[in-house]
């Protein structure tokens, strides 16, 4: 099967927020360390008041030649994939949520890589995109495998913190809070924090600077 799998858990205000236990599908490898969010989603496309069109702009410049024609960038070559395979410090730089929004709307549901920039990883958590950190050798081996077998199944298991492909099981790490949030279907934190609004007001009132 493909796509996120799991139960729908009601959130504090009754809306269904799906739990995400695993993501199964095919892979798309994007190689390179320190790929910043300006590369993932160039600033000129941020001029919009919604995220609706962001899928069009993921890696926009890198997917095109100088003359504007689509080139052989992985996001052009591996359409339909949902597991992105990357390297070190992926998503560094600007905090723009447009970057993971763009990847998500292109089709990405999980990202396996060596490491992730913090704000990017937080944004992934907010959107229900799982990130799995694996060793350098494992990240490269996964990228090699996807390139050799673009149609092969890849499965990221959030509970087990593994990525499985071709009989291989690679152990990695999903940050604890993200893992809990995805498995319990509480990755949308607004509702749960809103239930503590009175306590937030108490903290507000107790701080020395809030009556300025």
């Amino acid at each position: 099967m493909s796509g996120p799998a799991g139960d729908d858990a009601p959130d504090a205000e009754g809306a269904a927020v799906p739990a995400i236990r695993r993501v199964a599908g095919t892979g798309v490898p994007v190689r390179g360390d320190d790929i910043d969010t300006d590369q993932i989603l160039p600033a000129r496309f941020l001029k919009a008041v919604t995220f609706d069109d962001m899928g069009e702009y993921a890696f926009y410049d890198q997917r095109r030649d100088a003359d504007g024609e689509l080139n052989d960038h992985p996001l052009n070559e591996y359409r339909g994939a949902n597991v992105l395979a990357v390297n070190e410090n992926f998503g560094c730089g600007s905090s723009r949520e447009h970057a993971p929004q763009g990847l998500m709307r292109w089709g990405v549901e999980a990202i396996v890589g060596e490491s992730f920039a913090e704000i990017f990883q937080d944004n992934c958590k907010s959107l229900g995109i799982a990130t799995l950190a694996v060793d350098h050798e494992d990240a490269v081996a996964l990228q090699d495998f996807i390139e050799a077998n673009p149609d092969a199944g890849i499965e990221v298991d959030v509970r087990e913190e593994t990525v499985r492909y071709d009989g291989t099981v690679v152990e990695g790490e999903v940050p604890d809070a993200m893992r809990e949030a995805l498995l319990e279907g509480i990755w949308d934190t607004t509702a749960v924090m809103r239930t503590n609004l009175d306590r937030a007001k108490a903290v507000h009132d107790d701080l020395p600077y809030t009556d300025d």
């Binding site: 995220f51 905090s95 723009r96 949520e97 993971p100 704000i119 937080d122 944004n123 907010s126 959107l127 809070a177 949308d188 934190t189 607004t190 924090m193 809103r194 503590n196 609004l197 937030a200 007001k201 507000h204």
Partner: peptide, 16 residues
């Protein structure tokens, strides 16, 4: 912070 977290701050004055 990202935009979903901005929503959190608007709604709750807090981040997770």
């Amino acid at each position: 912070i990202g935009t979903s977290q901005i929503r959190d701050v608007f709604a709750t004055g807090s981040i997770a």
